[in-house]
Nucleic acid binder design. Structure first.
Length: 494
DNA sequence: GTAGGGTTAG
């Protein structure tokens, strides 16, 4: 049976849209070429789309560059979105610029990836310009476009602008609400996040809380350390979505129960989850780390690797932290060296920071100092801080002075660094050196601020203050704490 | 025919 060129093109297009394997796409591409069907905008756009979906961006670009109809926005949008989805933000922006140079106007499909690219290359000017374009071109009525603008402000922590966009939104759907909740949580405005969630719930049938809302809400409850709210949201999850319906919710539950001090509940959630990801394992390892259970972390890490999960950068930070907090020096060193040898990537600044902390706590202060010196420009104040803390712990004045003087340069008005050095001098009876640092603190006008913590028992805030309280009385601190922890434990309305 | 939101560390 012989088909016309048009029919063959249609058949190949249909075939391409159902392709899931690279080899099948290559066959279709070859057939198009052999049968003389190219160039053809529709067929090439289908090829572009399928190469993009398979993550073969290099092939996608080659197809894109050969599409004859340069006025076809569909192909431009696919190319820009694919680059943005694959974290090739600079390339996405270059195609966007090319589109402008061709005299084409971006449409409502072009703009969302532009905001993603703006965040990806960490250039807020691009997003601000994009917001201007949305208004000028009249795309404010498109939910996805408006949500992209909102996401841009949220990711930059610009909650004032996000609130402004949100309050003026024409179509405020669940994506917009979820963005606001996660945005407030991201900048530490936990009460605002919970207030936003409550408002979303009060809309009842008009707005459905979906499974994407809950990880952010749980995260906020965990940051507040409010177990009753966590339990309330957990109950809501079970009633609304059943047990174990979504990995991200399970991951968030593991994390928040751990943060609230309920390790057994974290373990229970972990054991009952069927759909686990690397985040699940990492969350559980982090819980053990926070509870000082280094051996359990290591066992779980081994089990995870045995089950075929490859640790990511965060997993490795978590396991190194756990080794550090539990004093498992050799095991930590072994994992650090395996980052290159077994997992084939370069240790990040965070991994180095964990190692400095691990060596410092373990008393390997010269080794920690050598590691810091080998890092040169990537050394941060917190790394020197970890070394100094180790020196206080192990009463090492030689390394301690080096770390302290580095910190005095980086953070000249941070009293805690001077106090740490004083601690070393005091423990070794070095009276003259101690007086000299105290005099320096007086000259700089530095005062030790009181440490305080509070706990919520039976809906009342209880505070514990330590050190000189200066102008703030204990009663004042009680009032501050009572205002911070609202008397509204069971107010989620779930 | 193309596009959007969540979870893990420090």
């Amino acid at each position: 049976m012989k088909y016309s060129l048009l029919e063959t093109r249609k058949k190949l297009s249909l075939l391409l849209r159902s392709c899931v394997a690279h080899s099948a796409v290559l066959q279709c591409h070859a057939q198009s070429f052999v049968q003389g069907l190219l160039p053809n905008t529709i067929l090439q756009t289908d090829l572009l789309l399928i190469y993009s979906k398979l993550g073969l961006l290099h092939d996608a670009r080659k197809v894109f560059d050969k599409i004859p109809d340069r006025k076809n926005m569909y192909s431009w949008n696919i190319m820009i979105a694919s680059y943005a989805q694959n974290c090739m933000y600079f390339d996405a922006l270059m195609v966007f610029r090319e589109l402008n140079c061709c005299g084409l106007k971006p449409d409502h499909y072009t703009l969302p990836p532009l905001f993603k690219a703006s965040v990806g290359v960490d250039d807020a000017c691009i997003g601000s310009m994009g917001h201007g374009l949305v208004i000028r071109l009249g795309y404010e009525g498109y939910a996805v476009v408006e949500n992209s603008v909102l996401e841009f402000y949220v990711k930059y922590g610009a909650m004032h602008q996000a609130c402004y966009v949100f309050s003026n939104m024409i179509c405020r759907d669940s994506v917009a609400w979820n963005l606001m909740i996660s945005g407030f949580g991201r900048v530490g405005l936990y009460l605002d996040a919970i207030h936003c969630f409550r408002e979303m719930l009060s809309l009842n049938r008009m707005m459905r809380v979906d499974f994407m809302t809950l990880p952010s809400v749980l995260n906020v409850c965990g940051k507040e350390g409010d177990l009753l709210k966590v339990r309330e949201v957990h109950g809501y999850v079970v009633r609304s979505f059943g047990f174990d319906t979504d990995a991200a919710i399970g991951n968030a539950l593991i994390d928040v129960y751990g943060k609230c001090g309920w390790l057994n509940d974290s373990e229970k959630v972990f054991r009952t989850m069927r759909c686990v990801t690397i985040v699940t394992w990492t969350a559980m390892i982090s819980c053990y780390a926070a509870h000082g259970k280094g051996e359990e972390s290591l066992l779980l890490f081994k089990k995870m690797v045995d089950e075929g999960f490859r640790p990511n950068s965060i997993t490795l930070t978590a396991i190194l932290t756990s080794c550090s907090r539990s004093g498992l020096i050799d095991q930590g060193k072994h994992i650090f060296s395996s980052i290159r040898s077994d997992y084939r990537f370069e240790p990040t600044v965070e991994h180095y920071a964990c190692m400095v902390d691990l060596l410092s706590r373990g008393g390997y202060l010269v080794e920690a100092l050598q590691l810091l010196e080998s890092m040169k420009s990537s050394v941060t104040g917190s790394m020197w801080g970890a070394l100094l803390a180790g020196c206080v712990m192990h009463k090492n004045v030689e390394v301690g002075e080096i770390a302290a003087h580095q910190l005095f340069q980086l953070e000249p008005y941070n009293a805690s660094n001077y106090i740490a050095l004083c601690g070393i001098y005091q423990s070794l009876g070095m009276v003259e050196s101690l007086s000299s640092i105290k005099a320096k603190m007086r000259t700089l006008g530095l005062v030790k601020s009181p440490a305080c913590s509070w706990i919520n028992i039976a809906r009342r805030a209880h505070i514990r203050a330590k050190g000189p309280v200066s102008s703030t009385s204990s009663d004042d601190l009680q009032n501050i704490a009572a205002n911070l922890i609202h008397d509204d434990t069971l107010v989620m309305g779930l």
